[in-house]
Design a binder for these strands. Structure first.
Length: 432
RNA sequence: GUGCCUAUAGUGUAACGGUUAGCACUAGAGUUUGUGGAACUCUCAGUUUGGGUUCAAAUCCCAGUAGGCACCCCA
């Protein structure tokens, strides 16, 4: 068998690996979360923005950085018939900054606070809470290097997550410095690892060449041991970075956000500077800490995207799939779902014909209802209404259809009135 | 990209290598049903895909695909 020929055996109509349909309850969970997140973001002064899902490949390669896994093996790239090299966004930040530069937003009063959300794409192997098409909610503050913005972004994210039901969140924070101090720090770090290269596992030797900072959050036991005595970023910060970091921590204390300085916290993306953040929560099943939001400051990204001036900025992305699937998620209901108090029961063909008119009256009167169009008998339908916890039901049968009226039944005391259709809205209004 | 585990109607499940792949729920058609969780009748629908072993494969073997878990990486 030729294994290459087998590759073509894929069912052409099957949904692709790592991608899924979002339906029913789950759809509402996403929608409910996005509504709540927007509400909080707007409250803190963030404005909505939406950038395209596809960008020129260069937007991501030059910002996220070649040598990172995201670019080297996880990005969905495509070539158009016209020969353009495009890519599905692997995250929101690069596109957001591209938009800022392209629209000359430097000339607006700074900073600009944005939120954005939607799908991103990474060609990664799926596992729990991890899909190839995944959803992020991003909070970003562009155009200022003030430390209060780092704190504001954290605070906003924190609040969104708490409103979504998260308890006992933990914030890991670190500073990886700027161009003043980072280069010399990395040099020192590299020389430290080189000195101890004998006890450095193979994976991390590889990282020493590609991205030495990442050795700091290695999971290799030997490396973790080694990292205890590794030079840490904080003591190598230049005075400006040190001050910035200290201020961020002060703000967090004022806002009563508990944080944990994690000297081994670094970021894989090459555009990060100074503050790096990760917000984690304990997974109730495994007891492990799971990252549900992450981000940091990216003061140099703008220049990498062709801006003549630096645009200091800071942002965090929430992994929405992980939030919505978590057992603690409070299943926020979207606003379009109104919880009805009235159950509409219809009996017989004539009633069904006319029932649409009755429903239209109720809809215009903004009275939310639930209804059954099944042909169950009256008793069964009343039972359903009972089960759904309806306070009232409207019974509309042959007789009522003839008489242009409905029976309005109070489920709690089983009393009922016959109400003429023209008086129905008035009658309902008087109930409340 | 790597490793381990898994795959039977829409869902949940059953079937020693051996009859026509069974059951429940759901769905659809119908009968009955005018006041608090109805009954009955009928119907649709399945062995993930491709190979192999065998007289015989849902069952054993190989590969593909998808899902789960872990690594890598990351939100």
């Amino acid at each position: 068998m030729n294994p290459q020929a087998n590759k073509k055996n894929k069912d052409p109509f099957q949904s692709i690996k790592g991608m899924r349909d979002i339906l029913d309850e789950q759809y509402y969970h996403f929608q409910g979360f996005f509504e709540k997140a927007q509400e909080v973001a707007v409250y803190y002064g963030f404005k909505p923005i939406e950038t395209p899902v596809v960008e020129q490949e260069g937007v991501f390669t030059s910002s996220i950085g070649e040598g990172t896994d995201i670019i080297d093996k996880e990005m969905y790239t495509l070539k158009t018939k016209g020969g353009d090299h495009l890519a599905l966004r692997p995250e929101h930040t690069a596109g957001l900054m591209r938009s800022y530069i392209e629209h000359g937003m430097q000339s607006l009063p700074q900073p600009l606070l944005f939120y954005t959300y939607g799908p991103s794409f990474r060609h990664d192997n799926p596992q729990k809470g991890r899909y190839r098409q995944f959803y992020q909610f991003d909070i970003d503050a562009l155009g200022s290097e003030k430390s209060i913005l780092d704190a504001l972004v954290i605070k906003t994210t924190w609040t969104i997550l708490e409103e979504a039901g998260a308890k006992n969140l933990s914030v890991d924070i670190n500073s990886i410095g700027d161009k003043e101090c980072r280069a010399s720090y990395i040099r020192e770090l590299v020389s430290y690892y080189k000195k101890n290269i004998a006890s450095l596992p193979a994976v991390d030797r590889e990282r020493l060449k590609t991205n030495p900072l990442r050795i700091l959050d290695s999971k290799e036991e030997k490396t973790i041991e080694l990292n205890q005595n590794a030079p840490d970023t904080l003591s190598h910060l230049c005075s400006a970075c040190k001050k910035h970091f200290k201020e961020v921590l002060e703000y967090l204390e004022k806002m009563e956000i508990p944080y944990n300085i994690n000297k081994c916290l670094v970021r894989g993306l090459s555009y990060y500077t100074r503050t790096v953040i990760e917000i984690m929560i304990e997974d109730e099943e495994t007891g492990k800490m799971v990252t549900i939001a992450g981000g940091g400051r990216y003061d140099y990204l703008a220049k990498q995207l062709g801006s003549k001036k630096d645009v200091p900025a800071v942002g965090i992305a929430i992994g929405v799939d992980r939030v919505v699937e978590a057992p603690w998620f409070s299943k926020l209901a979207p606003r379009i779902i109104k919880k009805p108090k009235i159950y509409f029961i219809q009996l017989g063909f004539d009633a069904k014909l006319k029932s649409l008119n009755v429903i239209e009256i109720l809809r215009k009167g903004k009275v939310p209802i639930a209804q059954s169009i099944s042909k169950d008998n009256l008793g069964a339908q009343l039972a359903v209404a009972e089960k759904l916890g309806m306070r009232y039901s409207i019974i509309f049968g042959q007789k009522e259809a003839m008489e242009n009226s409905v029976i309005f039944r109070d489920m709690s005391n089983r009393s009922q009135d016959t109400v003429k259709l023209p008086n129905l809205l008035e009658y309902i209004k008087n109930l409340k």
